[in-house]
Design a protein around this nucleic acid. Structure first.
Lengths: 217, 217
DNA sequence: CTTCTGTATTTTGTATACAAGTATAAAAGA
DNA sequence: TCTTTTATACTTGTATACAAAATACAGAAG
């Protein structure tokens, strides 16, 4: 009956996790830097117990490394780490694309096309931030069309690890143009429900991402 | 100088995580059942703080679900969950196979062939348990030959989720024979360093796994 | 001046106490 | 008899106190 009450129903744990995750993604907590418990718990206004539990989930997600008896650090990705993530992500999204063509409804496809057109608008207006946000959603939603929960989970996890790096790598304007072109190809294939072509376009998009990103590592 | 001392250097956290994980995989903690903190901490001889931290990492790994204010349960997989895991695992191992052919040394390939032959020995002796253990290692090691850390991590995670189910599904003897044949095909392709063929063989192996397992869900 | 060693300080790890929320069951009302 | 209410026990969530380990530092020996 009352639908508005449930919104604040996130546990403290989840809140701490996502706040610390944001600090990492935004680069406020720098890769490789030590995470000072006492400072952060004061800033977040929580006590050590829930904070340390949050660190454990972030560690399992791969964003943080807990060194026994000597604290935690923000995980720092090597060049080869990032390459390996993109290699896997490319294949996962390729699979997602193929499955999406087989399993998504016309309605769902149209919604994604609409999202793509919104992104085009931001691109033309040179409005980087909302484009970036919608881009994340584009990939998540396309993956969701695969109707494969495990695939979505793995994609989300790698996406989270790459978020910070991607944000840095997309600074150059010509890189942006290339990314938009890739998306265009993906949308064409999706409309035609050509799974092989969509899969290949998505894999190509990820390979291009590596080219865009690799020099900043 | 002293190499033997480091072995016991696992943190309490890691110990609790792997002990509870084992309890889940072995089915002592049944899927869907509530995890009673007070009982388990007594059994494990640890206090609530480290135990709850362990639950958080197990939750992030996907083996446990923490329901806010009402405890934790062992995650229970639906039929479609398992299908989606195998769908993803199939593609990941396909990729692993292709990369292994491109990146593994002759030495590494020979080691894996040797492992395969050990498995054949256990199969012929009808010795199920050691075969099962080596099978896990076979897939892990083959994936490791891809030299892709992210791929290994994702494979390990899905493998852990499936472990319990796989163990149940492999009860039938004719299923076992099929699995051995699949491995034979993989080894042939690996020796020839035929990436496409190895990838296809691994994907096929996973599809066969689904056929073996699906009826017990 | 460097290196080693012992002590002090800081930080992390674990246990426990207290608070808050949830489920259970008995009692009151319909 | 069935529903609703309310009291109680139990479980979980959070804070804090204590223990243990690591780090930093100062002084002594080489």
């Amino acid at each position: 009956m009352n639908t508005s009450i449930a919104i604040t129903n996130r546990s403290l744990h989840d809140q701490v996790v996502s706040r610390v995750r944001d600090l990492i993604i935004e680069g406020i907590l720098e890769p490789g830097s030590r995470i000072d418990e006492s400072t952060l718990i004061e800033e977040l206004g929580v006590s050590r117990t829930p904070f340390r539990e949050a660190l454990r989930t972030l560690a399992a997600e791969g964003l943080v490394i807990v060194k026994p008896s000597r604290g935690s650090v923000v995980r720092k990705w090597t060049r080869s780490d990032v390459f390996s993530m993109l290699e896997v992500l490319g294949h996962l999204e390729q699979l997602a694309g193929e499955l999406a063509c087989a399993r998504a409804s016309d309605q769902e496809i149209n919604e994604l096309v609409a999202l793509h057109e919104d992104m085009l608008g931001y691109y033309k207006a040179n409005d980087r931030m909302p484009y970036y946000k919608l881009n994340q959603e584009f990939h998540s939603r396309l993956t969701a069309l695969s109707k494969n929960a495990t695939l979505q989970e793995m994609q989300r996890n790698i996406q989270a690890r790459l978020k910070r790096i991607r944000y840095i790598g997309n600074e150059k304007p010509d890189a942006w143009a290339g990314a938009v072109q890739d998306h265009e190809a993906m949308i064409v294939a999706l409309k035609a429900k050509d799974g092989k072509k969509l899969g290949e376009a998505m894999a190509q998009h990820i390979r291009n991402t590596w080219d865009r990103v690799k020099d900043s590592l």
